[in-house]
Amino acid sequence: MKAARYYAHSEIAIEIKDLNKSFGNQHVLINLNLNLYKGENLAVLGKSGSGKSVLLKCIVGLVSPESGIVKVLGKDVLGLAQFEMDKIRMKIGFLFQSNALYDSMTVRENLEFPLRRHGLKYNKKEVDDMVFESLSNVSLPETAGKMPAELSGGMKKRIALARTLMMKPDIILYDEPTTGLDPITSREISNLILSVQEKYHSSAIIITHDINCVKIVADRIIMLIDGYAYAEGSYSELANSDDPKIKSFFE
C-alpha cells in the first residue's frame, strides 16, 4: 500500500465547484465539489456509469456541464475560446480508457501527434529524444516502428501513457487505467502511474473502480456515489469505514 502523503497545504491544480451534468433525465453529476492539489495522486472511486468519465471530460472541455465552476491551474475553463482551451489542454495529459491510439499511425507517429499543435517547433533531434524518453519511461523503446494493432493490451496502455507524457503535462487524468487488463499488468500500470508522479511531480486524477490500483497509487480517495463526492479520505481511512456504501467497494 502506498504511504499516502498529505498535499492539502500545497497549491490547487484543479478546483471543481457545484458541478452539474445530466443526460436527458439522468443526472450524473450533482453539485460535485472536488479539489486536486499539486503533486498528489487523487483517486476517484465509483461504480460504472456513476459519471466518473464525464467528470474528466468536463475538465478538458470535451463535455460541457450545465452549471458549476471548473478551474484548471487557476483558470476557469468553462466557456473558454478554442485557442485558450488548447493552451490549457497542453498542460493536461489524458489517458483514455480505450487508449485512443490512432490505428492508422505507427507508435512513433502516435507519439509525435501532440507536437503538431500551434506554435510548437522542434527539430528532428529534439523530437527523436522526446520520443525515446517517453518510450523509455514505459520501458518499450523498441516499439517505435510498430502499429498499435500489433501490440498487446498492456503495451497499448503503456504507449498511450507514453503519448500523454510527450508534452510533460502538469496534470494527468487517467480514465480507468487498469480496466480490461490482467492483475499482473494492472499492477505494472499502477506502478508506472506512481513512477510518473515521482519523476515529473505531476498531479493526477485517477478514475477507477479497481481497488488494488487505488491501493498502490492514491494519496487521497474521493468516492463518487449518486453523482456527488460521498466520502473522502486516505485508503486506510476509507477501508475501515462502517458505512455500507463505502464498505462494498473494499470487500
Binding site: L62, F94, F96, A100, F113
Partner: peptide, 21 residues
C-alpha cells in the same frame, strides 16, 4: 467505418485534447 471506429474508441476525443481540430 473509419471515423465511426475512431469516434467510439475515443480517438477523436484524443485528437481534440491534443490540440488538433
Amino acid at each position: 467505418a473509419e471515423l465511426g471506429s475512431m469516434k467510439v474508441t475515443e480517438q477523436i476525443d484524443a485528437m481534440e485534447v491534443s490540440g488538433t481540430n
